[in-house]
Design a protein around this nucleic acid. Structure first.
Length: 361
DNA sequence: CATCAGTAGATCG
DNA sequence: CTTAACTGATCTACTGATGG
């Protein structure tokens, strides 16, 4: 049976939660911010309410710019813990509506409705409209819903109409739905890729579909080229990832003061390394890959990384590896650093035969 | 030639 | 009046080395 997949996208999620926490701000612009702590207003916008968006405020925008657009807005710091709790409550409700649920991010989830609806789109619509209303009533939060034959199309559909949108794309209308959309509607096409496509005079998905597979592979490499080829035709067989596990954990932060001196970083890096160790160890995750990253005052990024033969055994070992990596990075950095970060990955990778041979060879 | 390690780059919110 | 401002987390592609 052809699949029916729904995608739920919470509307201005963080800002909407803050609006509920401050009912007196009804119909006023709310801007949820990541304050870096460097200066009073340094940082970026994480989420903007629709009243703020009307004035041009967007996620990723520097806070100072948002304040110029929206001087009377309410600028509040992000509270990820709260948003995570509400996200869990909302998407737990979704399990009752589908055969499987993938929580794709803090404010997005997919539900596979194939079995439950027996392939009936009218049934799928009834279910998801009920879910949408339930979330509105229970949490006073709006969401947009897309229903389509696969994840790719469901996600585009949920984005088609916002806020509180509801868009159904049936198999027979896939092509006509996609054709006029800008290429940026596709997951994975951001500003850089869009620019590359514009240079080839490709603006819409219809134009993207007119490209040969060979041309796309030549331009973007095998993986992305084939993805674009299929995506432009609405083809996506990828299943819901119901047990998704992160491949890496990282932490990056902005320094109060630019520096290129390890002694100035040491204490803070140590603290962050211990935190990262505690978080991963608490989840029973053990890693072999350790990286450090620096962003200099020109916003140029540099990294150093190492791979251990056996999983890291202690926070002290982690810090010791991190220290060596930073010393290498710092001594080669052309400019003082503005931001630094840590990353661990390679979780629970199986022992390597090569290394076992070394013991016996 | 397939795989792996190290690195830069891109996306998203 | 014009310009610049600029977080944090994650995934993925590219490149060069290495072993089968």
């Amino acid at each position: 049976m052809p699949r029916i997949v729904a995608h739920v996208d919470m509307n201005a999620f963080f800002a909407a939660i803050e609006q509920n926490a401050h009912p007196e701000w009804k119909n006023e612009p709310i801007v949820v911010c990541v304050f870096s702590g460097r200066t009073l207003d340094s940082g970026v916008v994480s989420s903007a309410s629709y009243d703020a968006r009307k004035l041009g405020v967007r996620a990723g925008m520097p806070i100072v710019q948002a304040k110029q657009l929206c001087a009377k807005g309410h600028f509040v710091p992000v509270n990820h813990t709260l948003y995570g709790q509400i996200s869990d409550q909302i998407f737990t409700r979704l399990f009752a509506y589908g055969d499987a649920v993938e929580m794709a991010s803090i404010d997005e989830a997919y539900a596979d409705l194939t079995q439950k609806t027996q392939g009936d789109y009218a049934h799928a619509e009834r279910l998801m409209r009920e879910f949408q209303q339930k979330i509105q009533k229970e949490f006073n939060l709006g969401c947009s819903v897309g229903i389509a034959p696969n994840k790719l199309l469901a996600k585009i559909a949920s984005d088609f109409q916002k806020p509180n949108g509801f868009t159904i794309v049936k198999p027979e209308s896939v092509q006509s739905f996609l054709d006029p959309l800008p290429v940026k509607s596709l997951l994975g096409i951001g500003p850089k890729t869009e620019q590359q496509l514009v240079e080839k005079n490709i603006h819409t998905i219809a134009q993207l579909r007119a490209c040969g597979a060979g041309e796309l592979v030549a331009l973007f490499g095998a993986a992305r080229g084939q993805y674009f080829f299929h995506a432009s035709r609405g083809i996506d067989e990828s299943p819901l990832e119901t047990n998704y596990e992160k491949q890496q954990r990282s932490s990056i932060w902005t320094l109060q003061r630019d520096t290129q001196d390890w002694n100035e970083l040491r204490a803070l890096v140590r603290e962050k390394a211990l935190e990262l160790w505690d978080e991963t160890a608490a989840q029973g995750k053990f890693f072999t890959q350790i990286s450090v990253v620096g962003v200099d005052i020109a916003l140029k990024q540099m990294t150093r990384s190492t791979t251990l033969n056996v999983a890291c055994v202690s926070s002290e070992q982690l810090f010791s590896e991190v220290e060596q990596l930073f010393q290498s990075l710092l001594s080669n950095a052309p400019l003082p650093l503005r931001r630094v970060g840590l990353r661990v990955g390679g979780f629970a990778s199986p022992p390597k035969q090569k290394r076992l041979n070394e013991f016996f060879g």
